[in-house]
Computed example of a mutant assay.
Amino acid sequence: MKKLLLSVIVICFTISVNAQSLGKIKTTNKKWAFKTMKKATKRIFINSFNVNFEVYKEAIDFKAGGNGGRIGGNTSSSTAKAAIGLGGIDGVKMQEKTNQLYKNYIKRLKAEGYEIITSEEVAKTEAIKDWDKATGPYLKENLSGIITCAPENFTFYYKKKGFFDFGSSGIQAKLAKQLNNAIVTDVNLYVIFSETGNDWMKGRAAKVKIKTNLRLVGEYAITIPQKFKKKKTTLGKLFGSVKIKGASDIHRVSSNVAFYDQVQASYTGTLKEDLEINDIMKKEKVVAYQKQGSFTPTSFSTFSNYLDAKADRFSTTTKWINVDGDKYAEGFYNACNTFLDKQLDEFFDKLK
């Protein structure tokens, strides 16, 4: 009896710890022509299963200088750059957790009576006839600071991007049809640790702020400062410097689980609010600030004063934060698995 009571206490404690490590999950979904999906066969193809996590964040701000004349004076340009990197993350553990998420996903689909369509069968379809193939384990930095992980023994097909990336649009419906009215599913998850803050009261200065907040994101914009490269060709030298200083490329992403059928009916499950992962990272802040140099002409001014004030000014702040690799991997897994379970519950409930 004592052993049984002790076991119950341990189980309750474990559940309590797991529950405390995540914020409250709030999901939402979008459906289109969903009724037709109920007519699909009990066969499903996992088209993609990508789990992404952020390990490095860089942000930049630029304040242009100018000539304000005798009253306003001359000001220099200023640039502020801040960066945060995570240390202690174990790639092997992250791969293992991704593998487990994939196994859980397959187990749930099979429990609902679905047959998992093999990659060998999909390879025979006309829809991906000329596509390339890759098989996990797959751990790669596809965006600066963002690592993409695909499960071990998971095979996926992709089309190399051309000038306009034609051909991949609507591939899910094409596959569903050529697989004899099957369902095609995509899984894309993003665990992000950074938030970029704004400061509109910075005056004559460049200022950038990065805050830490580990979470599974819903809708999110990944910003990556643009890198300036020297252009080797004549055309590149003429038109290659159009980029604006301090500008960033924006990549909009979303954590979601999506299902499609042959007539392009779809179900996309996302987060209404980001799902916070607690007790792994302290909430910290990194700020880079650089005031503009200024010069107002007077009878005592010298040319060297002018040059010194007009010189571009830079400020860079970088911080590395070490995390517990085991705790990080576990929090990553708990957030992703909780989201997948919740969305599968809702999807299968609506199929009934």
Rank of each mutant, 00 (worst) to 15 (best):
L22M: 09
K285N: 09
F163N: 11
K30T: 14
W320K: 10
T196C: 04
F332D: 09
A288G: 06
L189M: 15
F166A: 10
K124E: 06
D132K: 13
F303V: 12
D61Q: 07
A80F: 06
A205D: 03
K103L: 14
Y333G: 03
S77R: 00
V191L: 03
A59W: 11
S301Y: 02
F53N: 13
L235C: 00
F164A: 10
T36P: 01
I280W: 13
F156Q: 05
K97I: 04
K2E: 15
G331A: 10
L101F: 09
G73R: 06
T135A: 13
G136W: 13
I117V: 13
L179K: 01
D349A: 15
D326N: 14
V286W: 10
N52F: 11
K310E: 10
C336Q: 05
E195T: 14
K319W: 01
I11A: 14
K160H: 08
A335Y: 07
K35C: 01
I171Y: 01
L109N: 08
R204K: 14
R252P: 01
K107M: 09
F163E: 14
L340P: 01
P225W: 08
D132G: 11
K81R: 12
V187Q: 04
T233K: 02
W200I: 14
E115R: 15
F163P: 01
E276S: 14
A205G: 07
K211C: 02
K159D: 04
V187Y: 09
G331C: 11
G293I: 03
K202P: 02
N198I: 05
K230C: 00
F259Y: 14
L175N: 09
E273K: 09
D132W: 05
D186A: 02
L216V: 07
T317P: 00
I25A: 09
G113L: 11
M94T: 11
N67M: 07
V8N: 07
Q95P: 07
L6F: 14
D90W: 05
Y114D: 12
K327E: 09
Y333D: 06
N18V: 09
P225Q: 03
R252S: 12
I280G: 09
V55I: 15
T318A: 10
I147S: 04
G218H: 05
E346Y: 08
V242N: 03
P225N: 03
V263Q: 07
L216Y: 06
K177G: 06
Q264G: 00
R204V: 00
I171D: 00
F259C: 06
V263H: 10
Y102G: 09
S78M: 01
T148Y: 05
N213A: 12
S77Q: 03
F53K: 10
W200H: 12
Y306H: 08
D130L: 00
S119C: 02
K93I: 13
T75W: 00
S119L: 00
T318M: 07
F193Y: 13
D90I: 04
A329R: 04
I222L: 14
E54S: 10
